[in-house]
């Protein structure tokens, strides 16, 4: 599904390499987790894959089902099935959440040559998904993320994911700022989307999210590279030992 090969990325503004040859493949139906200490390049990887400005790919490739996503605009990547759940979802005053969702759904449909969703079908879909995430009507009517608590913002990300039905979901530090109840709600939302045709890349600093979203594969990232890959037990090892040992191994 998602294939990243030897990806090298530097900042546009300064000559500083952040990703130093990342190799990673996420298969359909699988959940991969990336863990790593602060500054290891985890979030940069998610930004580069989603097409945020400010980064330059100096080498390597990233493809989604064979298509080169690095040459696409952010909206084209979304239409191709890529979704990034933001670590810090952006507040957009003045744009109603429902308007935003409907515009996004229809823009993706249009890009794929499909008809727009009918107003009735859309409403039904949103209500159903919002209910699962315990989001009330008020949150749907309010401007995008404005006045939302940390947990509400993250639930709103998962709601978008549930409605847009992307094939490849990247979750960037989705657990940050969440209490245990909110994390469970978010994890349930994600687990409900797990199926044989969809891939997940869950980026997290802590192991606790992975108790709820159980990964198939865990990667440890450090210094801009994947330095270790294993099963869910690797996450627990990190929880117990921390990232301290990485410094010695990569040194």
């Amino acid at each position: 599904m998602l294939d990243i090969k030897n990806l090298h990325v530097k900042l546009e503004e300064e000559d500083k390499e952040i990703l130093k040859g990342v190799d990673l493949s996420v298969e359909a139906g699988k959940v991969h987790a990336i863990m790593g200490p602060n500054g290891s390049g985890k979030s940069t990887l998610s930004y580069v894959l989603s097409g945020r400005d400010g980064y330059v790919v100096t080498d390597g490739s990233a493809t989604l089902e064979g298509a080169d996503i690095l040459s696409m605009d952010p909206e084209e990547r979304a239409a191709a099935g890529l979704f990034l759940a933001f670590q810090y979802p952006v507040e957009i005053p003045g744009v109603g959440n429902m308007t935003f969702l409907r515009t996004a759904v229809n823009a993706q449909r249009k890009a794929r040559g499909e008809d727009e969703i009918s107003a009735a079908d859309f409403l039904k879909l949103v209500r159903e998904k919002a209910k699962e995430l315990r989001m009330d009507q008020d949150m749907l009517k309010r401007p995008v993320n404005v006045g939302f608590s940390g947990g509400e913002k993250k639930r709103n990300e998962i709601l978008q994911m549930a409605i847009l039905q992307p094939r490849m979901c990247i979750l960037d530090e989705t657990d940050s700022g969440l209490d245990v109840d909110a994390m469970k709600l978010v994890a349930d939302g994600v687990n409900a989307l797990r199926d044989a045709g969809r891939g997940f890349l869950v980026i997290t600093h802590y192991q606790r999210l992975l108790d709820h979203i159980v990964p198939d594969v865990v990667h440890i990232m450090s210094g801009g590279r994947i330095v270790q890959t294993g099963g869910p037990e690797l996450a627990r090892q990190v929880e117990e030992e921390g990232y301290g040992h990485l410094n010695e191994e990569t040194a």
Binding site: D73, E75, F86, T103, A104, Q108, V144, L164
Partner: peptide, 8 residues
């Protein structure tokens, strides 16, 4: 960017 990342 947020809007574009959702396909708009």
């Amino acid at each position: 960017f947020y809007l574009r990342s959702r396909g708009i």
